[in-house]
């Protein structure tokens, strides 16, 4: 599938849209009535993301760049519905994520969003195929279909001969590819990845990035990274600093 042009992309409805999003974290607990009475001060707050707007469309790879603490991961979590903004709104297609109950947001993640973390975090007692197939259990997919789908995805990420191996028997790159397969197994519309090559050597990282390029053919991908090579696969790079967007440009 050919990569859509900028003009083509802007006419397609967005997969996810963040509008004037701010996320404030509180350090420690509220003092409470008694705490205030004895002079306990209000807890410190940190504005991790401040008034950020971002639209992501299908077929687009968006890279989130910036130094540590710039708000990349927080923005990624907001886009994936793992957190809700303190101010502003994140809309997944036509749904405001903050308006959903915790359970419905979890369900939406299961059906629509694939998440890849820097560390692979696979269940070490299960085979690669069983790890990949786990999210399908929640969708009520039958055993045979689960195994078939998981095997297909492992084949697709180049691990067709490793489906019965446990995580401990796989290299770091192979484990990350299993994690990517797990994120894709429900056929999500949006894939978010937080430093997906952070734990990998250059060669393995390159192979994992190739997977993301393939993945992006029919869905939106958001990558948070400060690795230049990782960001090089993005169609657009959004730079963040101190929680705000300082630059957004096509790569």
């Amino acid at each position: 599938m050919a990569v859509p042009t900028l003009e083509q992309r802007t006419t397609v409805p967005p997969v996810v849209n963040a509008a004037s999003v701010t996320k404030v974290y509180t350090r420690g607990s509220e003092p409470g009535r008694f705490g205030r009475l004895i002079g306990r001060s209000e807890p410190a707050t940190v504005e991790a993301v401040s008034d950020v707007s971002l639209t992501i469309r299908p077929g687009e790879i968006v890279g989130l760049a910036g130094p540590s603490g710039s708000g990349k991961s927080t923005l990624l979590h907001l886009l994936a519905g793992l957190e809700v903004p303190t101010e502003g709104a994140v809309q997944y297609q036509d749904t405001d994520l903050a308006s959903l109950s915790n359970r419905r947001r979890t369900r939406l993640r299961l059906e629509e969003i694939g998440i890849v973390f820097q560390q692979f975090h696979l269940l070490d007692s299960l085979s690669a195929r069983a790890n990949v197939a786990l999210p399908l259990v929640e969708l009520g997919v039958g055993r045979r279909k689960r195994r078939q789908r998981a095997s297909e995805l492992l084949e697709r990420v180049g691990l067709g001969d490793r489906i019965s191996h446990r995580p401990g028997e796989l290299s770091g790159g192979e484990q990350q590819r299993v994690a990517i397969a797990r994120a894709l197994v429900t056929d999500p519309t949006l894939v978010v990845a937080d430093e997906p090559t952070g734990e990998l050597d250059t060669e393995t990282g390159r192979r994992v990035l190739e997977e993301f390029t393939r993945v992006a053919e029919d869905r939106a991908v958001v990558l948070a990274s400060h690795d230049r090579e990782t960001l090089a696969i993005a169609d657009r790079i959004v730079r963040l600093q101190d929680g705000t967007i300082v630059d957004s440009a096509d790569a």
Partner: peptide
Amino acid sequence: QQRHAFAVLRAQGLSSSL
């Protein structure tokens, strides 16, 4: 020991009941 793997699965949308 499995907390990270469980956390990823929950982030992925698996219910805690499983």
